[in-house]
Computed example of a mutant assay.
Amino acid sequence: MKESALSLLLAAAGVSAFAQATPEGLWRSIDDDTNKPKAEIRIVANGSGVLTGKVEKALIESKEPLCTACTDERKDKPKLGMEIIRGAKKAASEAVWEGGNILDPENGKTYALKMTPIEDGKKLQIRGYIGPFYRTQIWQRIE
């Protein structure tokens, strides 16, 4: 009886640790200029494992609440509630999600995306690429 209870506890701990090692969840982005929390973004997977992320809460009041710089169907739409991550999928060989894109609603630019959970899933490295150039942010998981 003790062995099966211990096995169940260890299995549950493993599932919990695995769940935290994914980009799915609620994240706090940090402003590049002020280093202060900027927004909360919720990342979810659809039925086929493709990730999307939406701005759930603004933590810094934006000078412009609409994405006036966007060039696609998000143009002039509210940044709050906006889908900024699209199409990311888990890479076959590593704990990395890529292949999608991320929108910076402040400048309207869309970047190729690579997301890597770090520090046991407590943080998420977000890297946006345009050609050989990239910008990296570290987001913090909200428990």
Rank of each mutant, 00 (worst) to 15 (best):
Trp27Glu: 04
Glu64Val: 08
Arg135Ile: 13
Lys63Thr: 08
Leu51Arg: 01
Val15Thr: 12
Val55Gly: 05
Ile41Val: 15
Gly121Pro: 07
Arg28Ala: 10
Arg74Glu: 13
Arg86Tyr: 07
Glu40Leu: 12
Asp32Cys: 07
Leu66Val: 10
Ala19Asn: 05
Gly14Met: 09
Cys70Gln: 09
Leu10Met: 12
Phe18His: 12
Cys67Tyr: 08
Met1Trp: 00
Gln20Pro: 00
Thr34Ala: 08
Ala91Met: 08
Asp104Arg: 15
Asp120Gly: 12
Glu83Asn: 08
Pro132Lys: 09
Lys63Trp: 02
Trp27Tyr: 04
Leu10Gly: 03
Pro23Trp: 02
Lys57Thr: 10
Arg141Phe: 11
Ala11Met: 06
Val96Phe: 04
Leu59Tyr: 03
Gln20Ala: 14
Cys70Met: 10
Asp76Cys: 07
Asp31Glu: 10
Arg42Trp: 01
Tyr134Gln: 11
Ala21Asn: 15
Arg28Pro: 00
Glu61Cys: 02
Arg74Phe: 06
Glu64Met: 12
Thr52Cys: 01
Ile85Asp: 04
Pro117Thr: 06
Glu83Thr: 15
Met82Asn: 06
Asn35Ile: 01
Asn107Glu: 12
Ala88Glu: 02
Glu106Ile: 05
Tyr111Thr: 10
Tyr111Asp: 08
Phe18Ile: 07
Glu143Asn: 11
Ser16Lys: 11
Thr34Met: 05
Gln137Glu: 15
Thr116Glu: 15
Gly47Ser: 08
Tyr129Gly: 02
Lys123Gln: 13
Ser48His: 00
Glu3Thr: 00
Asn46Ser: 01
Asn46Glu: 05
Ile30His: 05
Glu56Phe: 00
Tyr134Leu: 04
Ala19Trp: 03
Lys63Cys: 00
Glu61Asn: 12
Glu3Gln: 04
Tyr134Asn: 15
Lys2Pro: 00
Ser62Glu: 14
Leu59Gln: 06
Ile84Met: 09
Glu24Leu: 08
Leu66Gln: 09
Ser62Gln: 14
Lys75Ser: 13
Glu40Pro: 01
Ile30Pro: 02
Leu51Tyr: 01
Val50Ile: 13
Gly128Cys: 11
Asp120Arg: 08
Gly100Leu: 05
Gly108Leu: 13
Lys123Leu: 03
Lys54Val: 09
Ala58Gln: 12
Asp76Leu: 04
Glu73Thr: 13
Ala112Ile: 06
Lys36Leu: 14
Pro105Leu: 08
Ile138Phe: 10
Ser93Trp: 00
Ile60Val: 13
Ile126Ala: 11
Lys36Arg: 14
Leu51Ile: 03
Lys123Phe: 07
Ile41Asn: 09
Glu3Pro: 00
Gly53Asn: 06
Gln140Cys: 01
Ala17Asn: 05
Trp97Ser: 10
Ser62Ile: 03
Asp120Asn: 15
Lys75Thr: 13
Gly25His: 04
Val15Met: 11
Leu6Asp: 03
Glu73Val: 12
Thr34Asn: 06
Ala5His: 01
Lys77Asn: 07
Lys122Gly: 03
Glu3Ala: 06
Glu3Trp: 00
Arg28Thr: 14
Thr22Val: 04
Gln125Ser: 13
Leu51His: 02
Ala21Thr: 10
Tyr129Thr: 05
Pro132Asn: 07
Asp104Val: 13
Leu113Arg: 07
Val50Asp: 01
Lys36Trp: 02
Asn101Val: 11
Gly131Thr: 12
Thr52His: 01
Pro65Arg: 08
Leu6Gln: 04
Asp32Tyr: 05
